[in-house]
Write a protein that binds this DNA or RNA. Sequence first.
DNA 1: CCTACCGATCGGTAGG
DNA 2: CCTACCGATCGGTAGG
Lengths: 217, 217
Amino acid sequence: MTEAAAAVPARRPRGRPRKPPEAQDEGNRRQELLHAAARLFRQKGFAATTTRDIAAAAGMRSGSPFYHFENKAALLFAVMEQGMRAALQIQATALQAVPPEAAPDARLRTLVRAHFDVLLGAGSDFIPVMLYEWRSLSAAQRAGIARLQRQYEDAWADTLQALAAAGRVQADAHIARLMMLGALNWSVQWYKPKKGASLDDLCDQAMQLFAPQRRPR
Amino acid sequence: MTEAAAAVPARRPRGRPRKPPEAQDEGNRRQELLHAAARLFRQKGFAATTTRDIAAAAGMRSGSPFYHFENKAALLFAVMEQGMRAALQIQATALQAVPPEAAPDARLRTLVRAHFDVLLGAGSDFIPVMLYEWRSLSAAQRAGIARLQRQYEDAWADTLQALAAAGRVQADAHIARLMMLGALNWSVQWYKPKKGASLDDLCDQAMQLFAPQRRPR
DNA sequence: CCTACCGATCGGTAGG
DNA sequence: CCTACCGATCGGTAGG
């Protein structure tokens, strides 16, 4: 009778399956939650995604996400914030490669190309969630994300002013920015990687539409 | 003891407030539900809107929407379907005014103007719901709405082919359609009526961006 | 179209 | 990060 007491229910197979050690580092579980949340929020929407869905996708039990995030809303905010910070970095890095004295055309092309990376590049669920779930944010959260968005769009404003001043874009610079970003943002609805155009192709097409090369006379 | 038995609880004040008679006609309550649903689905999203919200907005009790619609999903589908049918009618009516032999520029302008009406005109919640809540549809529902969307977009395809063939638009006709519609669709995110540009102004700006007039030499 | 109601689910928490 | 749990809400229904 040393082995076990009959009344004690048999233990389950010794805990849950362990993750490989390199996945257990400090903030990695938080990142796993964020990626799972971004994917699910994009696929099903914020309200239709349960915290249980997210926990399961990250290999946790239902209560565990609340160890990393105060509540579901904080998860949404974190997805958008991380998405915008990555976007700002992609944009800044791209702009470093084009000298400030370059033609505004070249600057626009760089912005368009970077934006396709932001929207459609690897790990591209974060920004689509932001584009889709704005209404699910509280007023305070919106203000926080809007600050980052303004920073991102300011880079466009300068370039479009220059293009408008040069007559390379005939529409009003402000409206042109809204419409160009809209045209690009919409691509998250229809673009399928691996099938058809590359991001470079898309960038070429967008440039031809928005600021076509003047034909040789 | 003819008047009442003491154990019977007092009746409430004789039913709920009645609507004016012209609002009680046959299908009007259904339409009220649809409009309430469209407004709420747009504002809060499908999943975050409860059937109780919709019932209350239409002046009904919580169970009553299910007298008009089989379930919540059917309400969403009906909103989108009605939105697309109205859109097709707006587009067709607009195109009747432009002769088929007109320049493709004129046809494009008509399509753009009609699309702004569809997106931003009176009672404009139905199409934004469609743009935002696609993922909330079942596969069968998607197929039904997609049929109507194809019909709507076919009018664009012809015109853009003609513009591309004439060299008035340099981008590929298919991509141009996606990007133009994206640019316009995005306006539901930022356009505020009564403040700033009219729909005619927007149309002018869009045309200048997508198919600018050639400058006088 | 209302009343009264049900079963299921969900966000979140206490305590370890 | 798990276990065990709670209160609230929600879509939907029976029966009138």
